[in-house]
Design a protein around this nucleic acid. Sequence first.
DNA 1: TTGAAATTCAAACAACTGTTTGATACAAAT
DNA 2: ATTTGTATCAAACAGTTGTTTGAATTTCAA
Lengths: 214, 214
Amino acid sequence: MRNLQPDQTMDTRFRLIESASEIFIERGFKEAKIRDIVEQAKTNLAAVNYHFGGKEGLYAAVIQHNAALAIQDMSPAVSEARAPEEQMRLYIRTFLKRLLDDNIQSRMSKLIAREVVEPTAAFNLVVEQFAVPLHKTLNGIMRGILGPNAGEESVRRCSMSIIGQCLYYQRARRAVQRLDPDFSYSPANIERLADHISDFSLGGLRALAQRRAS
Amino acid sequence: MRNLQPDQTMDTRFRLIESASEIFIERGFKEAKIRDIVEQAKTNLAAVNYHFGGKEGLYAAVIQHNAALAIQDMSPAVSEARAPEEQMRLYIRTFLKRLLDDNIQSRMSKLIAREVVEPTAAFNLVVEQFAVPLHKTLNGIMRGILGPNAGEESVRRCSMSIIGQCLYYQRARRAVQRLDPDFSYSPANIERLADHISDFSLGGLRALAQRRAS
DNA sequence: TTGAAATTCAAACAACTGTTTGATACAAAT
DNA sequence: ATTTGTATCAAACAGTTGTTTGAATTTCAA
């Protein structure tokens, strides 16, 4: 049974979750090797099975841990800004930053992105609990721009057009670097990229809204 | 040494390349198991090493073989249509179809898409020889719509916005199905999806072109 | 037909990787 | 101090997977 005193036990658990978070995010569930995780956590190979029952248990703990860290500001994009156009800009900037920066707060977004593109046993949990709400938020913003007459189908496809653009820059990093040698993943350039995706998408949305109006 | 007569040798080589094409495309290089490939090819485990020198050699042969099959109509989008807007529609429809249909002709596009998202040892070859030309074609179309005053950077980002949308529907299939239960990967719906991406992107491009003009 | 080269095959090999084991160390409680 | 439960560790285990081996078979030219 688990012991919550601040002793070595908790330290090992914590160190394991920390290094596992990094390695799962970097390489994905299948390619992440337990031996690499325990080495980085400065503990023994058997520790994963002892504390988490196995690799899958560790992965579940990683999701739970990072969900708790991110839950506070998971969807901050909507409430603050007023016009849906500004909500969208904020949503895109926030999402893209999380996919591409190094913050601990952003880990859950990266885990979700992984599950979306290469599902594991935790797919249903992660999508149901995190991806669906995020998507619903974006759908709401899309509807705000497209207007009340837009069909649900059109709304969802616009959301996916935006998500798709953002994910591309995360998943296809090496190809991006080759196809656009000037491109940099610096914070400043990520801002500029978010602006491009926002401008591009806003143009697309307005065109769709207009077409529907005619 | 290789013998080109139409005997059992060539049959085995051919069957191996065929089943390997399917399995590499379906699961990716790392997850494709030689034992599955040889079983589907109805031959022995050692055949891969005998005929191709190893898994990597087989993968290289798969790329070469499918490149030869697709080379004839790799970039047919540009020449036929006149207006760049129509070129773009055709490009998107063709690319999306190839990513999502079951044609043998489309295999090379799927292999390229895999390399873009999860590079293997063949990344440089594949990107240099196939992805770069495809991208240049699309860049040309983008420039046709954006006008001569658009910066190279803007052109490239628009290309990537389009590619990103298309790749999303291929790579995130399971998430798409969950987030949009009505969505179907039927040929008819793929056409409609291509229309959406085209409309959305055309709106974005026109907005960018206009902003530049002002 | 015969013999050499090419091909196929079952088996073994070797490296990798998640899991289990049994011994040891440590902590807190009686 | 002894006991008990917890934690750590090195080692072994078991399954998977790419590769190699050596014998058997087939092919084909002389």
